[in-house]
């Protein structure tokens, strides 16, 4: 039987189904936890930060990343194939003229391999329902005040792709190396709810 469950009715139902599957020999004891651990293994925002820093220092990589993100992240030894099948990755770049922000309005789709498990607010109904209608207001609540001249593009992960935002490189970082640059990148920056 898998480990942690909260005391909600849906959790009780899931636990009951899991017990039946184990009883009938369709699932091994603890198999679900093992599969989830395998899926999460190696998934961390540090991966997204590495990808971002490489794109900042290597314009050729940035170009490949925006054209074919799955191929580009393989150059860094990363992949989107931790689940049942490889997921398509779409990277969208912030510019002075355009700011991107990612949401999954239907559930909580998220690029776990590059960002790790998603934050609680990303899964909240408030974020999911409001950021598509009023992104400027929601971003302001996150502390991100965008100039009125910056267009906002919201990406709804409603199908099979997963999305990562490529933040803008901060001013005054010309002398920093790739590793130091990666240290500046935050999870919120990669979702689009903060600048870097």
């Amino acid at each position: 039987m898998s480990g942690t469950h909260v005391g909600s009715p849906i959790a009780a139902r899931v636990r009951h189904v899991e017990a039946l599957l184990e009883h009938r020999g369709l699932l091994d004891d603890g198999e679900i936890d093992r599969r989830i651990d395998e899926f999460l293994a190696g998934g961390s925002p540090a991966n997204g930060a590495r990808v971002t820093a490489r794109a900042w220092v290597d314009p050729g990589f940035a170009e490949r990343l925006l054209a074919d993100a799955n191929g580009a992240i393989r150059e860094l030894g990363l992949s989107m194939s931790g689940g049942l099948q490889e997921q398509r990755l779409k990277v969208v770049a912030n510019t002075e003229a355009e700011h991107n922000v990612v949401v999954c309005t239907l559930c909580s789709c998220y690029p776990i391999a590059l960002l790790g498990p998603s934050p609680g607010w990303y899964k909240s109904e408030a974020y999911r329902s409001r950021v598509v209608r009023d992104p400027r207001g929601v971003l302001r609540e996150f502390g991100l005040q965008l100039p009125g001249t910056t267009r906002i593009s919201v990406w709804d992960a409603s199908a099979e792709s997963r999305y990562m935002v490529l933040p803008r490189r901060p001013a005054g970082t010309e002398r920093l190396g790739e590793e130091e640059l990666a240290g500046l990148v935050t999870r919120k920056g990669l979702i689009g709810t903060a600048a870097v």
Binding site: V132, I152, W155, D156
Partner: peptide, 11 residues
């Protein structure tokens, strides 16, 4: 209302 765009992934 709103001056932004929303890009949705649709079959």
């Amino acid at each position: 209302a709103g001056d932004h765009t929303v890009t949705v992934e649709l079959w």
